[in-house]
Design a protein around this nucleic acid. Structure first.
Lengths: 342, 342
DNA sequence: TGGCTTTAGTAATCCGGATTAGCAGGCGGA
DNA sequence: TCCGCCTGCTAATCCGGATTACTAAAGCCA
């Protein structure tokens, strides 16, 4: 029965009670029975009995001091892990991560202590605690390449969830193949007769944006119009599209697609009759709609799962492909039909 | 510039490079300048220069060996943290927890490694890692009282999110005042003329269930009917209610309220015309509805925030009320109107 | 009975950093 | 010139457990 809450129970205490040395306690606990460590059943039982009676549990941190692995998987998010501002975008990633971590017997350490500078967190700061974890998963739309470069330079085991451009050296990642998915949908639009199609969204900055635009251009040609959304109202964007006589809009961000649809409905513009709208992924901002958009979904859960698996491979030295793109799930939807003239 | 990725950089390495002792490096890093540790600016700068050049960062775990606090807040959930089965029920709790943890400079450790036995996780198992964290938050509908008792016996700092009955000793918690909220809504129904009202749900087992039923009985009397939901279809439950000529159903679980409403709509039973339906909290199972139910919401985010604050108080020895019930947010909604006869 | 092996268990050391006790050298005062 | 004191820094130790090297005692054999 546990008493004296003053000090934690240590192996030394157990040793004293079982009348053996601390070494023996450690050996028993680690179930060692090589030629170098012979513990007869009688002694072993005596030690185990004391351990059972006292409820002793080894300090996991002291353990890590001598062993190398800690069974802690770090998760670094460049935004809040449980944000209200990005809806449930991260949730599926984390569900996948948790699932695999649980199976591997790992705990998840969320680096919420990283201070926010210039609007996002930084990995490397004064009191960096990365090394508590055995390795780390990185989540976020944009990850500064200098931080990636430093992780690589320090040989810290990590995997990015989402494709990243080289940062001096190749970055290990599990990403979504936005480019192929976007190209496929764009080709489908072309085959339906669309000739005036536009990319709506940022298209620059993060790899995920650039990948979509690239896939779009592969299908629609290098001069296909790119309608920006930054700091513009959905009505503005809609006007822009109609002015250019666009028949199909490829919207990078689902929340923008929903807003565009709402603006169109308000204006009496029929979707997809007057304008087809394709959603290239999932909402990273809160936005709900029952509308079944044509486009694709990001395999978020699978990405989380595969990222943990890749990190595990990295940690255990198993060779594995370090850069992985998972296919997006195409959705038929009802917002892409042949254009009116076709 | 970091090289030789073979071994981690230690204070010993820094000491060698700066031509001082490991002790001095430690003193500089901890900014000590007592009478017992006098480091002139010149030496300090030399050490700092080497640290800067090498990018050395102290091992946070080795640190904890001698310091007591680790700045890690444990989060133990009796179900998955990122479940698909319970929708987003936990999300707001975690958002609140993250928010406060971030402010306190703490990292969040999710104990996903705890093995699942008999359908839920157990805190105490073979390879318990609780002590990696300074303290722990407990989330879950039901928490075995033997585990709570053991936490108390071992003097482990923890706070339960959600009220818990004593487990041999008082359990520190931040809960929601289901009982008052339920009573208030039930009284309101009575004042609207409802005489035949029923509690729909488990009403037993978890404290949260029992609290709601208790509040209900305080307003509706000890003999007010309790209609169970376990293993019954919404249609069954609806039949039961109609048979008993109930005019207002107080549904413990919002998902059940939504299902009940759907069953009523299908059957041509008007809600609230023929039957008022009150939702006593939020969905713990995936269920979406645009319907604005009368009832209340659980202050989940605030509970998370306050739980972290309470744990911080416990850890720092600040005296504070150890058992806290936050008021639920009552919602007017449109599903409670006077009964037809009134 | 001496020498060699096996058995059972322990002392010593390490992990990486924090802390305490204490030491060498320079300086001031009597 | 001797003593005490301050300065600047380090050796030693500790945290809790893992591991290695080694020893004392018993067993075996000739």
């Amino acid at each position: 029965m546990p008493d004296k809450a003053t000090t934690r129970l240590t192996q030394r205490d157990i040793a004293r009670l079982a009348k053996v040395s601390q070494t023996t306690v450690s050996l028993v606990l680690n179930n060692r029975s090589d030629a170098t460590a012979r513990i007869p059943a009688e002694t072993r039982d005596r030690v185990l009995k004391v351990i059972r009676e006292t409820g002793y549990q080894a300090d996991p941190l002291a353990r890590r001091m001598t062993k190398q692995r800690n069974q802690i998987l770090g998760v670094f998010t460049y935004e809040s892990v449980f944000p209200s501002a990005s809806g449930d975008f991260y949730h599926p990633f984390l569900a996948g991560i948790e699932d695999r971590a649980e199976r591997l017997g790992w705990d998840l350490l969320l680096f919420t202590s990283a201070p926010v500078t210039d609007g996002h967190r930084r990995i490397f700061h004064e009191n960096n605690r990365l090394r508590i974890a055995d390795g780390c998963l990185l989540l976020g739309r944009e990850i500064p390449s200098d931080e990636l470069a430093r992780l690589i330079a320090e040989d810290y085991p990590f995997v990015s969830v989402g494709r990243r451009d080289d940062a001096g050296a190749p970055v290990p990642y599990v990403g979504a193949d936005y480019s192929t998915a976007t190209r496929t949908v764009a080709e489908r639009a072309a085959s339906l007769g669309h000739r005036r199609i536009a990319f709506v969204g940022l298209g620059v900055g993060a790899e995920s944006s650039a990948d979509r635009l690239r896939g779009f251009r592969e299908a629609a040609g290098p001069r296909a119009p790119h309608v920006p959304t930054l700091d513009r109202s959905p009505g503005d964007v809609l006007d822009d599209l109609l002015d250019r006589r666009i028949t199909a809009a490829f919207v990078e961000e689902r929340a923008d697609a929903i807003a565009l649809y709402a603006a169109a409905a308000e204006r009496g513009v029929d979707v997809p009759g007057d304008l087809s709208v394709v959603a290239l992924g999932d909402s990273t901002r809160p936005a709900a709609s029952d509308l079944d958009f044509t486009g694709f979904h990001v395999p978020r859960r699978a990405m989380g799962v595969r990222a943990v698996e890749l990190l595990e491979a990295v940690l255990s030295g198993t060779s594995a492909e370090q850069q992985l793109l998972l296919p997006c799930e195409l959705t038929d939807g009802i917002t892409l039909t042949p254009p009116k003239g076709a």
